[in-house]
């Protein structure tokens, strides 16, 4: 059995390396992007194999799924921006400084892999103080305990990074007239309506399930937000969300809700505790759910807008799909 698992691990590792190599070396843009997406999914399998379902879920949803969608829309942007219908513009495939770079990277790769094997072989256990803090915490899922309480400050900053990325994109979009990536179509293909009609409730339900279960099991605001973001992406792609030139106030509110409420909570904590970001005794669970909910909303809104590469979106003929 252990030989079998060794072979399986080796196959996964070699597969990852091969896909990464092809993604960085293949001349075509589209081929590289597709290879990278496959790389992302194999990576998710690897993490599941390593026994980290939380992370595998996040990797599959956010990293492989949404990054893949972003990259594909970058391919599409390369088409639209150059006014070219079918053919991707010559993505410069020239490779420069190949030998010095190869030398540096081979050396670095060799040193890194030796050291990393050594480091990972350290049999470090979870520090007892940390294990105790996590098990006695009012929240049940260790990851959620870390994300929202012990390292909540990082989480606050991380959603601020997401918001900052949108603000940066917003600046870029204000600077020039980039062609719309997802212009609404006159007709939607036949099968798309029924798919969305079924997918919407399923995705909403799954997102809420992930959000709720995150309190005690794998899942949480990030996975749920990413799923909702994916739903938003589907709505944008099928023209149910139309691009706007400005960000309506409701969307702005959605964007800043997560970091804003979290930061306000951090400040308010001084009224019931000595430290910023501390949870009120006895109300940890409720406060955590409230924060996670605002984070989920903000993540979903920001990811949808980042994907659409527009300042704002608004809904079009919602609910009257079959006149």
């Amino acid at each position: 059995m252990s030989l079998l698992s060794l072979i399986f691990d080796a196959l996964l590792g070699l597969g990852l390396l091969w896909l990464a190599w092809r993604a960085v070396s293949s001349p075509g843009l589209f081929a590289s992007v597709v290879l990278f997406m496959v790389f992302g999914f194999v990576m998710a399998i690897t993490w599941a194999r390593l026994g980290a379902p939380d992370l595998a879920l996040a990797e599959a949803a956010i990293s492989a799924g949404l990054t893949g969608a972003l990259l594909l829309s970058a391919c599409k942007a390369a088409l639209t921006d150059t006014g070219n219908d079918n053919e991707l513009p010559d993505e410069p495939s020239t490779v420069r400084r190949r030998w010095p770079a190869a030398l540096i990277c081979t050396g670095l790769g060799a040193v890194l892999s030796i050291v990393m094997i050594q480091v990972a072989a350290n049999r470090a256990a979870v520090p007892p103080a940390l294990a105790e803090a996590v098990t006695t915490h009012p929240l049940d899922n260790p990851i959620t305990v870390m994300l929202l309480d012990l390292r909540g400050y990082d989480t606050l900053l991380e959603v601020t990074v997401l918001l900052t990325a949108f603000l940066g994109v917003r600046i870029l979009l204000e600077q020039t007239e980039l062609p719309r990536l997802h212009a609404p179509r006159a007709t939607t293909p036949l099968m798309v309506d029924p798919l969305l009609a079924m997918a919407t409730p399923v995705l909403l339900m799954t997102a809420l399930y992930l959000f709720w279960t995150g309190m005690e099991a794998p899942g949480g605001a990030f996975q749920a937000g990413a799923l909702l973001g994916a739903l938003g992406v589907m709505y944008t792609l099928t023209g149910r969300f139309e691009p706007l030139d400005r960000t309506p106030v409701l969307l702005r509110l959605g964007l800043i809700l997560g970091p804003g409420m979290f930061a306000i909570f951090a400040c308010l904590a001084l009224t019931w505790s000595e430290w910023p970001l501390a949870y009120p005794a006895g109300a940890t669970g409720a406060a955590a759910v409230a924060i996670e909910f605002t984070l989920m909303i903000s993540i979903a809104v920001t990811l949808t807008l980042l994907f659409s590469a527009t300042p704002g979106l608004h809904a079009r003929h919602m609910g009257v799909r079959h006149p």
């Binding site: 990852l16 990277c105 790769g109 060799a110 892999s113 990393m116 094997i117």
Partner: peptide, 10 residues
Amino acid sequence: SLTAGLLFAL
């Protein structure tokens, strides 16, 4: 860990 080291270099 071997894969990770090589991937970083790649």
